[in-house]
């Protein structure tokens, strides 16, 4: 079984297809990754920094051309500290949320007074919570509550769904759960097609630009709350894959080189925090499942600032290696985080 997976990962690396449709050999790919990593040096910024810098430059020039390049060219190199990953297990899902955040410094580490917060669960499918196709509503609702308690001025919960959005929001239980909190300044609204803005991906290898939901881009704190599940093309749908829900345009096109494109997107858009809902794992027939036979109850939450580490760890819950998910490999290669779990500080909260 294992060797099969490794072979597959190698084959994948052997046949990377660029956005122009050309295929790259393994050696050429290595070269490109190296060149890209060299180019990437000194380009690490968190999203807030990126946006604020971009905006400053844009304002200075009053011209909107080549925003991304200018924004990136002037940044400094912060030291990359060791990634911390926290896990919590138990069947009281709301209490898991605050527990899993403790080792990371609690929610107040991420949300300050007056922040605009986006909580981005997976609401992609017209499935009820037990089917493990969407993030569990209790976890989303608890996060919203914590965010408001931490002083958030506004909390938005949304996802660009794959099935009809009203049915997804309702059957997933997420909209009812968020609305039941009855908190002002909390919204669980459907995606508004007008609110996508073009985001340049200057270091993108496979894509150089994509439309991203404005509220996500402008958030002071963006919490990525995917559900851990099987996926036909990426093998697993985890933290990196969850960005699909804030993308505009024809998302089908992402699939042609999905691992690389997910990594590319995260070079331009980084969640402040990733919390992977592994309370239930969808083992087969992902990403939407539909049968309880395919669901494995795991009662686990995984949290990390390092999205690659979070994905790498979640992969192991499926008895797979982090290298088995190409998006993780590509994101690691793009310097987005640590996929070698031995180098990650894992805390069981």
């Amino acid at each position: 079984m294992r060797t099969g997976f490794v072979r597959f990962a190698e084959i994948k690396a052997n046949m990377v297809i660029t956005n122009r449709g050309a295929t790259l050999s393994r050696n050429r790919l290595r070269e490109l990754i190296q060149v890209n990593l060299d180019n990437m040096k000194g380009h690490y910024m968190d999203r807030r920094e990126f946006i604020s810098k971009t905006l400053k430059h844009a304002a200075g020039l009053a011209v909107c051309t080549s925003l991304g390049n200018l924004g990136l060219a002037s940044s400094k190199t912060p030291e990359q500290p060791q990634s911390i990953l926290s896990t919590a297990t138990g069947n009281n899902y709301p209490s898991l949320v605050s527990r899993v955040l403790e080792p990371l410094g609690g929610i107040q580490q991420f949300i300050k007074q007056g922040y605009k917060v986006v909580i981005k669960p997976n609401i992609g499918w017209n499935r009820s919570p037990e089917m493990a196709a969407n993030t569990h509503p209790l976890i989303v609702a608890e996060l919203v509550k914590l965010a408001i308690d931490a002083g958030a001025a506004k909390v938005s919960v949304f996802d660009r769904t794959c099935n009809e959005e009203r049915q997804c929001y309702h059957r997933s239980g997420i909209k009812p759960a968020v609305e039941a909190l009855n908190l002002s300044n909390v919204s669980c609204d459907y995606i508004d097609d007008r609110k996508f803005i073009s985001v340049p991906i200057p270091t993108g290898k496979s894509i150089q630009e994509w439309d991203i939901y404005k509220e996500a881009v402008e958030a002071d704190c963006y919490i990525n709350v995917p559900v851990a599940k099987h996926h036909g093309l990426t093998r697993l749908s985890l933290g990196l894959k969850n960005i699909m829900g804030i993308l505009g345009g024809n998302r089908g096109r992402i699939h042609h080189d999905i691992g690389q494109r997910l990594a590319d997107l995260h070079t331009a858009f980084k969640p402040s925090l990733t919390i992977i809902d592994a309370t239930r794992l969808l083992m087969r027939n992902g990403p939407q499942g539909g049968s309880l036979d395919d669901v494995k109850v795991k009662d686990t939450l995984i949290a990390s600032v390092d999205i690659v580490a979070a994905d790498a760890y979640a992969t192991t819950l499926f008895d797979l290696m982090p290298t088995d998910v190409y998006a993780t490999v590509a994101a690691h290669a793009a310097g987005l985080g640590e996929m070698n779990l031995e180098k990650v500080k894992i805390v069981n909260a």
Partner: peptide
């Protein structure tokens, strides 16, 4: 695409709603 152009694409499979 996977047939005609040997490009990976699974959008139909991903969206197929039947549990199996």
């Amino acid at each position: 695409l996977p047939y005609a152009r040997s490009l990976p694409c699974i959008v139909c499979e991903e969206h197929c709603p039947t549990p199996d």
